[in-house]
Amino acid sequence: MGNMKLTLKIWRQNGPNDKGRMETYPVNDVSEDMSFLEMLDVLNDQLIREGKDPVAFDHDCREGICGMCSLFINGEPHGPGRGITTCQLHMRKFKDGDTIFIEPWRSAAFPVIKDLSTNRSAFDRIQAAGGFVSVNTSGNLVDGNAVPIPKDDADKAFDAATCIGCGACVATCPNGSAMLFVAAKVSQFALLPQGRPEAKRRVLAMVDQMDKEGFGNCSNTGACEVECPKGISLEHIARMNREYLAASVTKE
């Protein structure tokens, strides 16, 4: 197989109430063609054969779109490299003999389930608070072309909508803030005519829920934008700030 030997320092934690600790695992035979998660598969295969407990980590599509994978690798969410998720990170980014630190997302709002796996349902609850357009299923809606949308607005809304909800923004933010995630959703709908009627309600409700979940406050360090695998821009946070300010001031 491969020819790289690595030392992995991995966070092990049995459950939300366990204190957790870093443990060291050597892995041999790592090929540079492997993805980072395949390298962990190799480790787990080894651990199972040795009768040990494999490392729990979240992953699903392994092509960078589902947002399920979530590792803090050598001090960065989704590891080194820009515009990729952990599952798209390949081992050729590392060298033989490297030591790699692997930790879960750390946030009060994302409690650890086990090892590297965390509970991100806080994002779902924020979405449920207002991240939608209130339209029921109907076979009789107006035609999709009834309301033209300027291409630039549609494109910007799309850029915001590419968020995969992985939580890297929260993980990397020194304050554990979820502003980029929330702003992406608020901004997407704020930019589209379909989202305008309930724009005020939406931004107030979503920010309120975000605060209740225990995320930190944005201090505009911009770390989230750099680490976001989809390159969501800070512009969306500014737009949310604007929307929220206007909504707070004009609220009846």
């Binding site: 001090g75 080194p80 930790e103 709002a109 225990g214 201090s219 770390a223």
Partner: peptide, 23 residues
């Protein structure tokens, strides 16, 4: 903000994504 991250990272690399003073 401190409460939002009760457990600190063992290894963090702030230089990768922000200026030191912004943090």
């Amino acid at each position: 903000n401190r409460q939002a991250r009760p457990t600190r990272y063992v290894k963090e690399k702030p230089s990768a994504n922000r200026t030191w003073y912004s943090g």
